[in-house]
């Protein structure tokens, strides 16, 4: 009997890799450490995804159902891999639930960890209740509760979204751009304006990077249709006067310091490497790249390859990634793993 392919992590990349493999008849074991499938979009309760505008529970939930209903995919939840050995075609993985799995190849879709805003104490998260993260606002929207100040449940009149929290910041060792926060923030700003038309939303930015087609669909649209205000300033600190949050910074376009009251401050948190990456690196004996993400060999000469043959990687495990691209990478990694499972050599480009 042919050996299955082990897919680690059941987020967008893992679900898409599993589905791609199952659709060509390949057996898959899908392992996730959480008690259910879906990965961060489901576990963190995302609202509407960009750029599709579909609700996460529908879009990613649909991918979960598709995999669950597929006989070729066996999913194992609440489990992690604790031991790993073997060579391409005949790996052996030991799970935390005691189970041993023989696999032809492995795809790591272990994703990322949200930046913990407590690590930027000057921006008030953890000190003031009304300083929240984009993830929390996503949850307010997806739960149907609506955007409210956590301190007293009032509707905010003024909301500030601070970009690049945990991104592009040498002070805290995070020199990367998290790629998605600009688009996510402009989307959230529009959702806030839609729910609370009297609420003014300000986005404090260093640069706006809603790359590709999202330029007009998100950045322009938030300005033109939803009157979201963008102010070029990196905020210095968030304090409180007892009643309102006070945001301090410098408006660099007019060269003036600002000290402005807000009801709610939202941190557009970035994507950290998965907190378990050191462990994953040790267990699978693979290299991490300089920022701490799983290192993917160059994409010109290899397919979704890590530093260990037969072990592949897809999605945000390799660095900040969008959901749509994670799904595409999952499909790519599936092809590479399938070649190994079929005993074929993945040829390197010369």
């Amino acid at each position: 009997m042919p050996k299955p392919i082990l897919v680690l992590g059941a987020g967008p990349a893992g679900l898409s890799a599993s589905h791609a493999l199952a659709s060509v008849g390949q057996q898959v074991v899908l392992v996730d450490k959480a008690d259910r499938l879906g990965g961060t979009p489901i576990l963190s309760g995302y609202a509407k995804l960009v750029p599709s505008g579909m609700w996460a529970k529908d879009a990613i939930g649909g991918m979960v159902d598709r995999v669950k209903g597929d006989g070729a995919v066996r999913s194992v939840t609440s489990a992690t891999v604790q031991g790993f050995s073997g060579a391409p075609g005949s790996f052996s993985a030991k799970l935390s639930n005691g189970e041993a799995i023989d696999a032809a190849a492995v795809i790591l879709c272990t994703g990322f960890t949200h930046f913990d805003s407590v690590n930027k104490p000057e921006w008030g998260f953890g000190t003031f209740e009304d300083v929240v993260t984009t993830t929390q606002v996503e949850q307010m929207i997806s739960s149907g509760q609506g955007v409210r100040c956590p301190s007293d449940g009032r509707k905010p009149k003024r909301v500030a979204i601070l970009l690049c929290v945990g991104s592009r910041d040498r002070q805290i060792g995070r020199e990367w751009c998290s790629k998605i926060c600009c688009t996510v923030s402009s989307n959230l700003a529009m959702e806030i304006r839609e729910e609370l038309p009297d609420c003014h939303v300000y986005i404090y930015y260093m640069d706006i990077r809603t790359y590709g087609l999202n330029e007009d669909l998100y950045y322009w649209r938030s300005q033109e249709e939803f009157k979201v205000k963008y102010i070029k300033a990196r905020i210095a600190e968030v304090t409180s006067n007892g009643e309102k949050l006070i945001v301090k910074g410098e408006d660099t376009l007019v060269k003036r310091p600002i000290t402005i009251p807000f009801d709610m401050v939202v941190h557009a948190i970035g994507m950290d490497p998965n907190v378990d990456n050191m462990l994953i690196s040790a267990i699978f004996n693979i290299e991490l790249e300089k920022h701490g993400h799983i290192k993917r060999l160059d994409t010109y000469s290899s397919m979704a390859a890590t530093s260990r043959p037969g072990v592949f990687v897809a999605g945000a495990a390799t660095g900040p990634e969008t959901i749509d691209d994670s799904i595409a990478q999952g499909q790519g990694a599936a092809l590479a793993a399938l070649a190994v499972a079929n005993g074929n050599r993945v040829q390197a480009a010369e």
């Binding site: 003014h200 033109e224 009157k227 600002i258 402005i260």
Partner: peptide, 29 residues
């Protein structure tokens, strides 16, 4: 001090209500 302590949020809407000002909110500087 030259610190900005508040914005007059009506200003943009007011100017946008006058002929010619309709698209002021599109500006990206």
């Amino acid at each position: 001090t030259r610190v900005v302590t508040d914005y007059n949020e009506d200003m943009e809407t007011e100017v946008a209500a006058l002929p010619g000002g309709e698209h002021i909110h599109r500006c990206w500087q």
